[in-house]
Design a protein around this nucleic acid. Structure first.
Lengths: 185, 185
DNA sequence: TGCTCCATGTAACACGTTACATGATTGC
DNA sequence: GCAATCATGTAACGTGTTACATGGAGCA
């Protein structure tokens, strides 16, 4: 399990409530590691029980129910330990591959529509990442270690979306080759 | 859920037993959609109950317990229906991104070793895919619709592994920039 | 008053992983 | 005879998803 470690990393960057974390996991961090608020609350409760994090009521005089979590030394130790064990690779496990295979066996299923839809999604995300890059990492800027690593993560997203965008174009070309229509099977 | 649909696609290509499917999901198909034998047996039982597939004892005179599954019309209808609904995108959800972020916040954690390990894994897979491509889709060959789509799927794997291989090189370069060691944080 | 957002949770279910179990066949 | 492989399964658990529930705060 590594949601716990993702959350601790976020908490080290800034002490937060579950709600705050859920929103951050819907934006920046969430582009690379998505989690719902239910998952987050459940995991925070476990981590507190394990002694990795501690909570205090937010310094707003009890106006809200907000709980602020911070990472305890035991939690940081655990994070360091975990960071050094081998990480499982991200598997290429895409339902679209199954659909393409089904299309190959059964016959044309109209997957080009679906691929066009996804091409739009990838293009949108790519633009978002590129906008963030232009804003946070302008060319010519001088950056320290932390910023360079964050930039690397962002560039991973850019590479990823650009790669899939290119793939969509190729896939559409293959699906629409006249030969595929003229000489079925 | 789409393991059921992946299994039906495989069964359409060839009627098989759970054991056969498990082996195929450990090789060719498994490069794009992994599943353990336990998952497969459980899913086959469900699918038979749902009337999507049917089993018969293998035509080996009862020498083995082998059950051969084939897809029923209801199963193929379901597969066609499913193939036409939108497919969830493959999310970039890689523990290594979390580790890089932790490294950015806490300080150097020696992730270059891990990245080198993964670089080896990607390189190995890439070679496997390229060997399959050279064997099954030699340049200059003439292929029908089915083969072209299978080739597209294989090329997806090649693009994917080659992309990550390139990423690993860039990540190593960033992690080893002297500036990152000379001017921490 | 009613709507939206803040903030935290419970419950049930779907899916994937790991460990364990059983027995037959094949090859040395 | 013994080990490896064939072939099928049960059980328990961890994680992720979806639906539902609760109540306060801010604003029109």
């Amino acid at each position: 399990m590594s949601l716990a470690h993702a959350l601790m990393t976020s908490l080290l960057e800034r002490a937060s409530s579950g709600y705050d974390l859920a929103r951050r996991f819907d934006k920046s961090i969430g582009f690379f590691w998505h989690a719902t608020h239910q998952q987050i609350y459940r995991e925070l409760a476990r981590m507190e029980k394990a002694g990795w994090i501690a909570s205090e009521t937010a310094p707003d005089g009890g106006r809200t129910r907000k709980k602020l979590y911070r990472v305890l030394p035991a939690g940081q130790d655990e994070l360091v330990r975990w960071a050094q064990e081998p990480a499982p690779m991200l598997e290429l496990r895409d339902e679209l591959m199954v659909r393409l295979r089904a299309d190959a066996v059964i016959g044309p299923l109209g997957l080009d529509t679906e691929i066009e839809r996804r091409m739009g999604l990838h293009a949108t995300r790519l633009k978002v990442y590129q906008a963030i890059e232009a804003r946070d990492f302008p060319p010519g800027g001088e950056f320290g270690r932390e910023a360079r690593l964050q930039h690397l993560i962002l560039k991973t997203g850019i590479m990823y979306e650009a790669g899939w965008l290119g793939w969509c174009k190729e896939a559409l070309a293959v699906l629409r080759e006249p030969a595929l229509i003229d000489h079925p099977a």
